[in-house]
Computed example of a mutant assay.
Amino acid sequence: MVLGRGMRLLTGALIVACVVLVGHSAPGGDPSARSLPDEAVRDVVPNRVMTWNICNPCEESNVDRAAEIATYAPQVIGLQEACVRDVESIRDHLEDLHGLVYHVEYGTVLRNWGRCGGTPWSPGAYGQAVLSAAPMTDVVNVEYPDGGSEDRGYMAVTTLVGGQRLRVFNTHLAERRQEAVRADQTGVLAAAVARHERAIVLGDFNAVPDAPELTRIWALAADTDPQCRPSLTGNCKPTTDWQSKFDYIFLRGVVPLEHRVHPTPYSDHHLLQTDLDTT
């Protein structure tokens, strides 16, 4: 039986009430839902975009991941290192516990039992995902010819940001110390981005701003932080626990208004947020 939105919200409220009264874990092994901070946004912010590598394999609760996203309530968020089952759970918690309804598209490039569970003969799918408060169209999922030590790729969708239809890319480049592989990957990505006059490129690029492999992306787009540039004069805020900037929101033909980096205990990557002027 498929529950309507109203029933799903009621069910979510009952779950929270039961957790408070009884103190047991939420369904699926997730710990009890935590309350949002006082400064949390209460509805989707239509011009807000975020990117977050949610860390995998990590023993983190999807209830907590959903609460982190709900705190800032972006119109669009790109996730990396994402298992389909986890994303489905995050989306459900966002709706049931926080009243935020998102559409989801997947850019999975790998089936891996060790990362995503399932069974050895039917492992879970792993890669990227995009959650958008508006429907998404023209979905593209591309695996890079060479992923390096692990299959990698990019996905792209068209959706609404600030009331405007924009092309949104989400990628995860090869792991550190694989510079040549990342250079080939950014060549593939840049060729796709260049076909659009206006685009948003999200992701974990596994490279610092002045890394040579990012040259083709910098030639097409600017980081959402106007102070962050691929030069020694740039002042880029770190987005990881090891104090490196690996996560980016590149903008092509779109103007940034405000950006923030939000450290989180639920991943070794911080959440990166930007509010945009898309008009």
Rank of each mutant, 00 (worst) to 15 (best):
T186H: 03
I77T: 02
V109N: 10
S35V: 12
M155L: 13
V45Q: 12
D30A: 15
T51S: 12
A33G: 07
L189A: 08
L36W: 07
L94C: 11
W52C: 04
S35R: 11
G4R: 10
D30P: 08
T171I: 07
D225A: 02
L3W: 11
H103Y: 15
T240L: 01
A221V: 08
P46A: 14
I69S: 04
A192N: 04
A125P: 12
N47F: 07
R167F: 11
L166W: 09
A70P: 02
L173H: 07
W121S: 10
A73I: 01
V254R: 05
L9M: 05
Q273L: 14
T215L: 08
S32M: 15
A33C: 12
A17Q: 14
Y102V: 05
I69H: 03
M155H: 06
E88I: 05
L271W: 02
A207M: 09
T119A: 14
P226S: 04
P265E: 13
G114S: 12
V2E: 14
D64F: 10
F205V: 09
M7D: 12
A26C: 15
T240F: 01
H270E: 07
F250E: 00
R195Y: 12
G147K: 01
D247I: 05
L79N: 04
Y106A: 00
G253V: 04
L202E: 07
L3N: 09
I69W: 04
V188C: 12
G162P: 06
R65W: 08
A70D: 04
C18Q: 14
G124M: 06
L272T: 06
G114M: 15
L166P: 01
L189E: 09
D184M: 11
R167C: 03
A125H: 09
L257G: 06
A194L: 03
L21F: 14
I200N: 00
M155D: 01
V188W: 06
Q80V: 10
T186C: 03
A183Y: 12
K245S: 05
T51V: 11
R165C: 02
G12A: 10
N47R: 08
G162I: 08
P238V: 02
D210E: 13
A199N: 02
R48K: 08
Q75W: 04
G23L: 14
G6A: 14
D146V: 13
Y266N: 14
D247L: 03
